[in-house]
């Protein structure tokens, strides 16, 4: 088992650079798909504070993926400002946005999060292969990346070689989601985004997964954006946003390309 003694060092509440500004701020956003005439997303204002956990609810096709695409810098809105950690994403080049994304964000997909040809630890440390800052942060917590991965895995109840030595395909869905959570958390990104990460879990695993995720996010000092249509989980979050209420786009339910 990994030593727990290093845990306190990771619990760095980044008070120094909060300075009252939110972690993410979207203003006057308007996005439409290339060739599409009507915007699919029109948001006057959206923000996320430091160490805040937010639940974004919306039926499928309500523009959730588009919103996440804009926050992560995959998509650029035609109008409006996207400011993440004091940087205006609109101004960054594609390569800069790619680097910025991995430096500041961890991402958990709905399912099949893992790369089949890498082992569990390799999957967890993947962001550190592309981000120097996350690698450096991970190495502040543990002496090697592997050790840090194992530490996170054991926090997410995936300790012990009987789980860690398994091939990715042998893991249960719940275990896969927790490995994905470890990957999203490694190197302490400012933001963890879960794109319906609990949809493939049954109800009892949902809550325990979420509880572990909360625990690790607060330990790492990461904010959490959680997108789901499952309102049962909403009470666990600091704030709940109904996407249909902030999205003014007339085509907001068309869901763009999907």
């Amino acid at each position: 088992m990994m030593s727990i003694s290093t845990d306190t060092t990771t619990n760095t509440k980044r008070q120094d650079d909060v300075a009252g500004k939110p972690l993410i701020e979207l203003s006057e956003i308007r996005f439409s798909w290339p060739g599409g005439t009507l915007p699919v997303l029109e948001i006057d204002h959206f923000h996320l504070g430091h160490d805040e956990s937010i639940f974004i609810r919306g039926p499928s096709g309500s523009g959730k993926s588009t919103l996440l695409g804009i926050i992560t810098g995959i998509l650029l809105p035609q109008d409006g400002d996207v400011v993440v950690v004091d940087r205006r994403i609109n101004d960054l080049s594609g390569a800069e946005r790619d680097r910025f994304r991995v430096d500041t964000m961890g991402y958990i997909f709905q399912m099949f999060n893992l790369i089949p040809y890498l082992n569990i630890v390799e999957n967890v440390i993947l962001p550190c292969q592309f981000s120097k800052s996350r690698k450096a942060q991970a190495l502040r917590n543990s002496s090697t990346l592997e050790e840090e991965a194992l530490r996170l895995l054991s926090h997410l109840n995936l300790g012990g070689s009987e789980v860690q030595d398994k091939v990715v395909a042998e893991l249960s869905v719940g275990q896969q989601q927790r490995v994905a959570a470890a990957r999203a958390l490694i190197g302490g990104p400012r933001l963890v985004i879960g794109d319906e990460p609990t949809s493939s879990l049954d109800s009892e695993h949902r809550e325990s997964f979420l509880r572990l995720l909360f625990e690790e996010c607060s330990r790492m000092g990461s904010s959490l954006i959680f997108v789901s249509h499952d309102i049962d989980l909403a009470p666990m979050f600091d704030r709940v946003v109904e996407l249909s209420e902030i999205n003014n786009a007339p085509d907001g339910t068309a869901g763009g390309k999907e």
Partner: peptide, 16 residues
């Protein structure tokens, strides 16, 4: 394609 999306999420660029 799924693998590529995962790689993109962990910082891989299209050129990667």
């Amino acid at each position: 394609r799924r693998e590529m999306a995962i790689l993109r999420s962990v910082g891989a660029r299209p050129i990667h």
